[in-house]
Structure formats: structure tokens, C-alpha cells
Computed example of a mutant assay.
Amino acid sequence: MRPSSRAFIYSQNKAEMRKVLQENNLPSPKWELYTGAKPTEISFPLIAKSISGGYDGRGVWVVGSESELAEILKIQPRLLLEEKLKFTTEIAVMVARSPHGQAATWPPTLTIQRDGICIQTITPAPDLSDTLKVSAQEIALKIADVIGLVGVMAVELFVVDDQLVVNELAARPHNSGHWSIEGSVTSQFEQHLRAILDLPLGDTSMRAEFAVMGNVLGGAKTDMYRPYLHLFARTPYLKVHQYRKEVRAGRKVGHVTAIGNNLTTLESEVSHAVNYMNGVVDE
């Protein structure tokens, strides 16, 4: 089974993740485990998280006071508390590692969030210094080695001024790496198979200067076939992925990707496609 339970626990248990990061001097916010037995040492406002479970903003609370924290404890008797960082952007680095220790990363990806859900990614992350790009990849490679990763993993990071802070780990092919299907010589899915089969890892170079991916969230439209026809005719180079899920409001039901050398055009086309598919625009 890959990744092993030894590695996977750091993706599933946020407290164990924080412990291993701290033990290996990897950048983390101030944090503590909290049961209400004594006052927290972290200043308000702070972030409270479920120890396990939760995604796309679920199981995460911004807490402004002890009384608010006490209310959350009624439904989650044990919490991970973290300082609320004043970050400028969020990025993610996909990393792959094989059983014999070969490892590779893709370029850092800017993840754009709305209501705790990633709505768009841009690779490579624009406006990120070369120093931080290299640092983000080095952090991802070190984490992969420390936890004994086999397969692919997303390392999510906050950019705080000129520093990086690890937010969460996801030991699996990840939404922030979907751009690699079209945008990289080796996609995250192919690389995952190469890694778990202990084959030589593939080339992670980009096929174009930029790759922009937009998540399609469920909206007013439930029939996705007609939007496909329009988008295929309007933007022939756009790639549309449908997950064949039941369409529900706010649910990720697919994504679109465009690669090329003009970032402004790519962002515009991807945003239009997403808005057309979920019914925000009708032309």
C-alpha cells in the first residue's frame, strides 16, 4: 500500500504533521494542541482546526475569543490551534518520491482561494522570487524524505513577506497539481505510478511558460454538454475535465486548463470558461 501508513498519517493527522515539522526545523506557525484544560498561549484572533478530516475550508475556524473557542470545543473536544498569519499569497509544491529515494518537484503553484476553496491555480507562481521558489521546492523535498513518502504529495505553504510557512500536507495527487496533465512533460498522475512502482521518475519540466487551471464549481447549470460545445468552439486550445459528479452548489465538478506564454490571456480564457460552465455568464 502506497503511501504507507507511516507517511500517510502526516496528511491525515494535523497534530502529527506539526510535530514532525517542528522536530525537523521546518517552518511552521506557532501551534498547540488544545482541550480547554488551560488558556491558550496563542493570541486572538487565531486559527482552530480539526485534528483529522476537513478539506476545502471545512473543519477550520477563525476564532476571535475564548468564548468562541469554547463553543467549537462542544463539537470538537480536541483542536489544533495555530497563529493567524498575515500572509500575502498561498502556494503549493507537488513533490514525488520513490522507494529508493529518487525525488522530484514541479514548479511552485499559486493557489487562489475563495471561501476556503481553491478556485484557480497559476504555475509557476507569478511574483514569487527565485529564492523563494527554490526554497519552496527544497522544503517539499525535505518533507518527502523525512516522512518516507512514496508517491506524490502536495505541500501547501503560506508566503509571509520573504518567508515560507508550511500550512498542510496532502499525500496524494492533488487539485493544485491538475495543471500538470497538460502543462508538464510528466503529470502528477503518471509520476505517482512511476513512484509507487519504483520506476525512474519523469521529467517535470513545463510544456509552456504558464499553465492556468480553474476549478468548475457547481452552479445554475446541471447539463455540462452544451457548455462543452461552446467552449470547444470558442477556445480550441482549452482542455476541459468533467468528473461526472452530481452537480451541487459549490461542489467541484470539473476543471479547465490552458497553457501558453501570455498569462493575461490564459487567466481571462480560464475564468470565462469556469463562469460559463457554472452559469455566471451565458455567452
Rank of each mutant, 00 (worst) to 15 (best):
I196H: 14
A249T: 14
I196S: 15
G202C: 01
Q242P: 05
R251D: 00
D223Q: 12
K221Q: 11
D198N: 15
G214K: 00
H241S: 09
I196T: 15
D198C: 10
A220Y: 08
E246V: 09
A249Q: 13
S205Q: 13
A220D: 13
P236L: 03
T204R: 10
M224S: 11
G218L: 05
K245I: 02
F210N: 01
R251T: 05
G214M: 00
A249I: 13
D203R: 06
E209Q: 15
M206E: 04
I196F: 10
D198K: 11
T235G: 01
Y228G: 02
Y237K: 10
R251S: 04
D223Y: 05
R207Q: 15
G214E: 00
R244Q: 12
A233I: 03
D198F: 12
M224D: 05
H230C: 01
E246T: 12
R194A: 12
D203C: 06
K221I: 12
D198Y: 12
I196M: 14
R248A: 05
Y228M: 08
V240M: 12
P200M: 02
L197W: 13
F232T: 08
L217W: 09
D198R: 10
L231M: 03
R207W: 09
Y237E: 09
G202Q: 02
F232N: 11
S205Y: 01
T204C: 15
M224E: 07
L217H: 12
L197H: 14
A195I: 05
L217Q: 06
P227F: 07
A211T: 00
E209S: 15
V240D: 08
E209C: 09
G250F: 05
A233L: 08
E246W: 02
A249K: 13
M206V: 00
D223C: 01
G250L: 03
R248E: 03
D223G: 08
A233E: 14
Y237R: 12
K245V: 06
P200I: 03
F210P: 00
P200D: 14
Q242C: 09
K239D: 02
L201T: 04
G250Q: 04
K221H: 11
R194M: 08
G219W: 03
R207P: 12
I196V: 15
F210K: 06
R248P: 04
A233Y: 07
P200K: 07
G250N: 07
